[in-house]
Amino acid sequence: DETGKFLVLALYDYQEKSPREVTAKKGDILTLLNSTNKDWWKVEVNGRQGFVPAAYVKFL
């Protein structure tokens, strides 16, 4: 159920650099879980949760 969740689009490829991050490919649609940090947003992609740089994604 996606009610109340926001989707964001990956603008660039991002390769995770730590276990707390997730890899995303340009064009991926990610479920935004938390955007309270202006630099790192928590997302879910391909069943995995983790952080990506906020500058790499935008709201749909």
Score class of each variant (00 low, 15 high):
K25T: 07
V45Y: 07
K5R: 13
L32D: 00
Q15R: 09
I29F: 05
T23Q: 03
A55G: 11
Y14T: 01
V45G: 03
K25M: 10
V57L: 15
D28Q: 13
W41P: 00
V57T: 00
L30C: 09
E16R: 11
G4V: 13
F51M: 07
D28E: 12
Y14R: 00
R48L: 07
A54S: 13
T36I: 08
G27D: 04
V8W: 05
E16I: 06
D13H: 05
V8Q: 01
P19D: 13
G27F: 04
A55V: 10
V57A: 00
V43N: 00
E21K: 04
Q49S: 09
P53N: 04
K26I: 08
L9T: 08
S35I: 11
G27V: 03
G50S: 01
Y56H: 07
V22T: 03
K42E: 14
V52C: 07
S18L: 08
V52K: 02
N46Q: 08
V45S: 08
K5Y: 12
L11W: 06
W41I: 08
K42N: 04
F59A: 09
V52S: 02
L60G: 03
Q15F: 15
N37S: 09
T31N: 08
D13G: 06
Q49C: 11
G27K: 03
K17Y: 03
F51V: 04
V52P: 02
D1P: 14
D1K: 10
T3W: 11
K42G: 03
Y12H: 10
T36L: 09
F51L: 08
Y14W: 11
R20Q: 12
L33S: 01
G27R: 03
G27A: 02
D13L: 05
L32G: 01
V57I: 09
N34K: 04
A24W: 11
G4S: 13
L11S: 02
V8E: 00
E2K: 14
T3L: 12
T3H: 13
S35W: 15
D1F: 14
K42S: 05
G50L: 04
T36E: 13
P53G: 06
K26P: 06
K17S: 09
K5C: 15
Y56D: 01
V8F: 07
E44W: 05
D39W: 15
D39Y: 15
A10E: 02
V8M: 07
K26H: 06
Q49M: 10
L30A: 03
N46R: 10
K25G: 04
E44T: 04
Y12V: 09
Y56N: 08
Y56R: 01
T36S: 14
T31Y: 11
G47Q: 03
Q15A: 12
D13W: 09
V43R: 00
S35R: 12
D13P: 05
R20Y: 14
T3E: 12
V43K: 00
F51H: 02
